[in-house]
Amino acid sequence: MTPVLETTGLGVRYGRTWALRDCSLAVPRGRVAALVGPNGAGKTTLMHTAVGLLKPSAGQVTVRGEVAFVAQDKPLYDGFTVAEMLTFGRRMNPRWDEEAARDRLGRLGIPLERRVGRLSGGQQAQVALTLALARRPALLVLDEPLANLDPLARHDVMRAVMAEVAAHELTVLLSSHVVSDLTDTCDWLIVLNGGRAQVSGDIEDLLDGHRVLTGPAGLAEGVAARTRVVAASGSGRQATLLVRDRPVLDPRWSDRRPGLDELVLAYLRSPGSAALPGPARQGVGA
């Protein structure tokens, strides 16, 4: 299936430093892709490039269909009423579902005549999301959509996004640095590290393709020689390895499927240039 979002050799440079470098990835239609990585990894830069706020310095980015964006901090015009924000959306976009937008806000109990600046943080997030969804985009890009929201508002926002994915053929790219926020909602994972894409693929496939091995530290090197180790840690006599594939093991080793946060952390701890035999840079499972 043709991906909705595709980047090839994408690079973005600020002055002399590359915020994003040689980044190639694709998000298939209908997926909810999690974009994770430490601060400064290039998450926001990648998103800004995808929505056209930034021009690539190298390579290219392709979005098939209309893209809607909710920036970090969900910017809105504070002095506008909610109804005026809807007018803004209607006048700025030829494709606009006013009825759905009013319906959504009505169900959320957000009064149309209230000034945006006087809404709660959760309500502002919902208004920003409503503006984006009313455009009926093919791709919805959300930069840290859950940051600064209380647990209830986080749940409400994710519910709204998920319902939209279920109802329309919407593809979502959302960033977060809290991996646990993403476990039940995302089905595609992109790990950015130091401006490069480290992982990109289906989450279930990725989790199936990795194992967490625990066993005697003395045998770790032998195992490492036979498989691709993503990350290794250990305390004293016991070693824990996160590896790709499933090696034939000495019975002294136990192995299990990793959790999403374990997998993400393992990759973030060992960027491609680490001493351990790292993964291929183009990612895994793709």
Partner: peptide
């Protein structure tokens, strides 16, 4: 200052027309 350029410039209307 308010970050609203990221709202205004990501609508369907081209920035140059805005």
């Amino acid at each position: 200052e308010r970050g609203t350029h990221r709202l205004a410039w990501t609508q369907a209307m081209p920035v140059r027309r805005w």
